[in-house]
Simulated scan of single mutants.
Amino acid sequence: MLLVAVATAGLLGCAQKNESQEDENEEGHALLGVIQAVDEEGLTLTVAHEEIPDFMPPMTMVFRVGPGDVQVFKEGDQIRARMIRDEDGGFRLIKIWKIDDKAASEMRKVNERLAKEAEKLASGYYLAEGDTFPEFALLDQYGNTVTPAQYEGKPFMLNFIFTRCTDGEMCPLSTSKMASLQKMAADAGLEKLEFISVSLDPQYDSPGVLRAYADAYGIDGKNFKFVTGEREAVRQLIKTMALTRIEADDDIIHSLATVLVDGDRKIVMRSTKKTWEPAAFLEAAKAL
């Protein structure tokens, strides 16, 4: 897998090296580097990485990655990731995130406002129909920043899922319903209706993982964004919707919240049930 060893110390300069998503007990090694090449067919990234303390000197290597990663990242991107061993002894990158100081700073400012909004809510209270949906800033399955401000004048559907969810009546069903509603809205001529699914598992659900998840459901990403980001921002957004989220081994036990938000960011319809009907939300969207 090794291509060529090069001197890459200080490769990222003063770039953001935020690893707050990571747990010290996670498998593999933290890696910082710059993408040199992307092989979509071979599902690999060539990365010039900095020294990995007590493990590997700086060098350029070819890493296996997921199918979504080769679609999200491009040559020249600065990244942080976890490097792990494949079964055959090769190296693979997981949990890949682009390092972008400017975008991170702008997102942090927005999410500070989200935190203040969440702090106003007493325990057990949440934003209900008629309330203004809060600001947030997260990354979508293309690696782009998503904020409600981008949807000014446009209604949007929003729910919460995570890609490793195996309960067929929870995330898989919710995603299938959102995908069905997206198609129903297109057939009904609701061109302005947008869709957002927020990951409850940002530590695992990187943009590349979300890209593969969306593709697996055959979802058109033009108006359907799967978003992830800093755990604290996701936690605050969850709080505003009063979702239950409990980590248990490799699973997350959680409740549901599906909302329709109008073009003025007012919540016009909210459901916490598994049995929410896409047709009901479609009719509400038609009335906007």
Rank of each mutant, 00 (worst) to 15 (best):
E117K: 15
A118F: 12
K120A: 14
G124W: 08
Y125H: 15
Y125E: 15
L127H: 07
A128Q: 13
G130S: 10
G130K: 10
T132G: 10
F136W: 08
A137D: 02
L138W: 03
L138N: 07
L139E: 13
L139H: 06
Q141H: 10
Q141M: 07
T147Q: 11
A149R: 15
Y151E: 09
Y151I: 05
E152A: 14
F156I: 04
F156P: 05
N159H: 09
I161R: 01
F162D: 08
T163G: 00
R164I: 04
C165Y: 09
C165G: 09
C165I: 09
T166P: 08
T166L: 13
T166D: 12
D167F: 09
G168W: 01
M170A: 13
C171H: 07
L173E: 14
L173N: 12
S176M: 14
K177L: 13
S180E: 14
S180Q: 14
L181W: 03
Q182F: 00
A185I: 01
E191L: 05
K192G: 03
S197E: 00
S197G: 01
V198P: 03
P202G: 07
Q203C: 01
Y204K: 11
S206M: 04
P207T: 03
G208S: 05
G208K: 04
G208M: 01
L210W: 05
L210A: 06
